[in-house]
Each structure stands twice: as C-alpha cells, then as structure tokens.
C-alpha cells in the first residue's frame, strides 16, 4: 500500500471519528427524554431492514432465480429494483398519515392513481425488455 493512501485513510478516519462524535454529543445534548425516544428508532430501522426487508428480498430473488425463464430475468430485476424503493418512498403519501383536515394543500394529489400510473409504466418498460430479450434468445442477463 502506498504511503499516500495510508495518509488519506488516516485523515478520513480521524475526520470521520470527530464528525461522528460531534453528532453524538449533539444528540446527547438534546436531553435524556429525546435520546430515549430516538434509540428505538435507531435500532428499529436496522431490524426492519436486516431482519425483515433484506431476507424477504433474498427469498424472492432465490425463488425467482429458480422459476422464471431466462428471458424474463432482466425484466424481473427492473420491476423489483425500481418499484420496490419507489413504493417504499410512497408509503407516507399513499397512507396520507400526515394529512390535516384544515390544510388542503398538504398531501393533495391522487396518490393511488399516481402509484398505479408509475407501476403501469415500469411494468410496460419491463415487458418490452422481456420481449426484446426473448427475441434475442435469452441473453446471459
């Protein structure tokens, strides 16, 4: 390893530790009650990802890899990778959890219709990709 790389890594690590500590001090400085309310969320998001979402995606991927014909696999990846995150991003708007009865300018779109339209376009693009791949004779992926 070159010495330049070592210097860069050391500087990054020291800067990172200082920046992170500053954040931790700020977080603790917000008081005990705030910290106790924050910690379950800090742990919860990791559990939700590592114990629920990620295993689910791995299982779906494994199941799909064994069953889907080869020409449909690229299309399946597009559907999962695009629609999955976009749907997660839409949870607050689809659920309208923050809506206020007195404020019609907040959460003021037709979100279900919007989501259906986005989903339809992504499925259409994926279908075209699958048709293309089938015509070309099932590329490697």
């Amino acid at each position: 390893m070159s010495s330049n790389l070592t210097v860069a890594r050391t500087l990054l690590a020291v800067a990172g530790a200082l920046v992170g500590l500053y954040g931790a001090v700020r977080l603790i400085g917000l008081g005990w009650g705030n910290l106790v309310a924050t910690l379950p969320w800090l742990a919860g998001v990791v559990v939700a990802h590592d114990a629920l979402l990620a295993p689910l995606v791995v299982l779906v991927g494994a199941a799909a890899a064994g069953r889907l014909p080869r020409w449909s696999r690229r299309a399946a990846v597009v559907v999962l990778v695009v629609l999955g995150p976009v749907t997660l991003l839409a949870v607050p708007t689809l659920g309208k959890f923050g809506a206020k009865a007195d404020n019609p300018t907040l959460l003021d779109r037709q979100y279900v219709a919007g989501w259906v339209a986005v989903t339809g376009l992504v499925l259409l693009a994926a279908a075209l990709l699958a048709v293309h791949d089938r015509g070309k004779g099932a590329p490697r992926g």
Binding site: M1, L5, A8, R9, T10, L12, A13, A15, G16, A17, L18, V19, G20, L21, Y22, G23, A24, R26, L27, G29, L30, N34, T38, L42
Partner: peptide
C-alpha cells in the same frame, strides 16, 4: 434537532467506512 445531530453521525461513520474500504 435529532435529524441534524444524526446527520453528523451518518457523515462521520461514512467517512470512517470510506477510510476502511478505500483500497
């Protein structure tokens, strides 16, 4: 204030991660 404090934590731990993985 919590989003701001954890922004620093995320940035700091990201820099440490880059330092570890740089090679």
């Amino acid at each position: 204030s919590t989003h701001f404090a954890l922004g620093w934590v995320a940035m700091g731990s990201l820099l440490v991660h880059i330092a570890v993985k740089l090679p």
